[in-house]
Design a binder for these strands. Structure first.
Lengths: 218, 218
DNA sequence: TTAAAAAGTTAGATAAACCTAACAAATATA
DNA sequence: TATATTTGTTAGGTTTATCTAACTTTTTAA
């Protein structure tokens, strides 16, 4: 049996390592910050996860997921994103409301439910934030995407996902009339601070570099 | 904040008192048996629930739910039955599979989700076992029903719910080709042990008194 | 290259939900 | 009514997930 808490640690490790490019290991403090607990707590849990062969790590060393640990993590991510899709598509939730509830739903234990949910949703490949949904075998389709900041002036692109899915950010994006698959035209860019002028639905906005870096487009 | 465990105690009390006719209070042992924990554990929890004003009880006295406690319990029952309906109607679960997963889903905290789920399901009034689903105000429609055992010979009735919803029983019922709303004709009854011969879908079976008492019909 | 800072670890504590074993009160019955 | 049985309580212990505070190792930078 894998506890809900253990699942959350494995999921966090997956996001911090496997899912971020260039990184395949994490540290105790890093995990602690991510999970909003103290490093000492992470340390305790790490011992248990190591015992269960879900992570490999040595004292003062870095943490990586084992095959077993990764497969559990992927299953949680799969459930999380399927539930987000369900909430968005079927339960009329908005972009920024889905995450919190999916954090609870992802821990429901029922193989059949996950399979039926996936079938009901028509085997979706991306969730409402544009992130890929792992299939039943744990395979994840790579998505080629650039940040909005990298788009050249005059080009038109389509919003496919967000990097930081915080409620504040998603609500801001929504307020500008933007959503998944919306078209964005890059009008100009300031050399000084990297801010950009963009056009969405015939309306023009100026957004910061930080904002543009948070949006992935194709 | 009400913990998942607290919710389960309140729900158990609701089933044992409010929902069973002739009874409005429960004892420590009774609750312990129902929840499959030891009486000592129930005792500990009772102190906490009393502290929180969810139950009223005095040392060596009987336990009853307060208004506050009852309204939490009803909300859990409402969620449980809505989720059961969802699993049965939308996720292709069978009669006997829904309970276990609904036990998990009933603890998901999201007002919006419950409301949307209810709307999606078309404001159902009974769950897949024929039990009434409380509405958003906590009101429960009384269902007039008799046990199959009380039906007179020659009469035809309709199965509306089951008393004991255990997997073993539900599977047995299913195997006889019976389900919610199926028609049952009473053919004969044995004086000796109360067993009855019934006809369902033109097939005849002999069932025990215990079995017949577990089925509610109209 | 060594000292300061950052990162990681250990020991001891707490709260929740459970347990066992011993005891006390209430109820049922001889 | 007295005693046996059932029911309920208390005290003390365990596990899980968390904490704080003190300590150690590693890394960084002067």
């Amino acid at each position: 049996m894998v506890s809900q808490t253990e699942e959350n640690y494995l999921k966090a490790l997956f996001h911090l390592t496997c899912e971020s490019e260039h990184k395949i290991e994490a540290g105790t403090n890093e995990l602690a910050v991510y999970l909003e607990v103290k490093p000492a707590t992470v340390n305790d849990m790490l011992k248990k996860l190591k015992e269960k062969k879900f992570v490999s790590y040595e004292k003062y060393g870095k943490i990586t997921l084992t095959k077993k640990g990764k497969s559990i993590a992927v299953e949680i991510v799969r459930k999380h994103r399927l539930w987000e899709t369900f909430l968005y598509e079927t339960m009329n939730f908005t972009w920024d409301e889905v995450h919190e509830v999916a954090e609870q739903l992802e821990h429901i234990k029922s193989q059949k439910l996950v399979e039926q949910l996936e079938k009901f949703l028509g085997f979706p490949e991306i969730d409402p934030h544009g992130d890929p949904i792992p299939n039943a075998e744990g395979e994840i389709k790579k998505i080629v995407r650039k940040s909005l900041f990298e788009i050249s002036i005059g080009a038109v692109c389509k919003l496919v996902s967000v990097k930081d899915g915080s409620v504040a950010f998603l609500q801001y994006v929504g307020k500008l009339g933007m959503g998944l698959n919306c078209k964005i035209k890059v009008i100009s860019r300031q050399e000084f601070d990297g801010s950009m002028e963009i056009e969405v639905n015939s309306q023009r906005f100026t957004v910061s570099q930080k904002f543009a870096n948070n949006l992935f487009v194709v």
